[in-house]
Computed example of a mutant assay.
Amino acid sequence: MKGMVFTELLSMAEHALGEAAVDDILDGLALDNDGAYSAVGNYSCGELMRIVGAISDHTAIPVPELQRRFGQWVHGRFVEGYPAFFADKPNALAMLDAIENEVHVEVRKLYPDAELPTFETEWHGMRALTMTYRSDRPLVPFCHGMIEACVAHFRQPAEITVTEIGDDHARAARFHVQLTG
């Protein structure tokens, strides 16, 4: 897993809890590299999940809700860092539809070793989209938060329905996004 995910998680936690609290949380874990991450490095998802679990324990925010909030945070960082991806999209559905064949193509150019989830999209008219998410990592709630933040970014009310598929423990889901406004 790319280090950017780790650095953003720690940045979000420091923003919410302060640097000292995050240092205490990391000190309580026996991490492979003592909690030092490079945005371009590669690290295990298991280590990320241990950090998420420790932040959850510290804050009493359940892990799925913490992942959702983290997805929202990361979406905001993407908007700040890569505004061109969003500039020509008329709505959230168009942006969501572009993830696999536009955004991930560019990510792979920058990081050929990136292990990205897959997104299959199916349009239902002009106001609804179903995204099927599959990953080797248990990050369905993270993805949900990213979708929520995308909808909020475009200021279009929408109903988001999440259906986990298979018994892959939060590794696959269908997100149905219906614009309501």
Rank of each mutant, 00 (worst) to 15 (best):
L66Y: 01
V103H: 07
Y43T: 14
R50N: 09
F78L: 09
D88A: 14
E122I: 00
M4T: 06
G46M: 10
V162M: 15
R50W: 09
G76V: 14
A170Y: 13
A170S: 14
M49E: 13
M95I: 08
L26F: 11
R69G: 07
N91W: 01
G76M: 09
L96R: 05
D136N: 11
T59K: 00
D168Y: 11
T59H: 00
D34I: 07
T161W: 10
H58S: 06
N42D: 08
N101K: 10
I51Q: 09
Y43H: 11
K109V: 02
V140Y: 04
M4N: 01
R134L: 08
V22M: 01
V151G: 04
K109L: 06
V177D: 05
P141M: 01
A87T: 15
L10Q: 08
I165K: 15
M12S: 03
M1W: 00
Y43K: 07
T130E: 09
G46P: 12
P83R: 11
A84P: 07
F154L: 08
V103N: 03
H15R: 14
E164L: 14
P141Q: 02
E159L: 14
S44H: 13
Y111L: 04
P157I: 06
G35Y: 02
D168H: 14
T7V: 05
W123R: 05
E100A: 12
D113F: 10
P90A: 08
L129S: 00
A149M: 02
I55N: 03
S38I: 06
T163P: 15
S11L: 09
V74D: 05
I55C: 05
E120F: 01
R134E: 07
D23S: 13
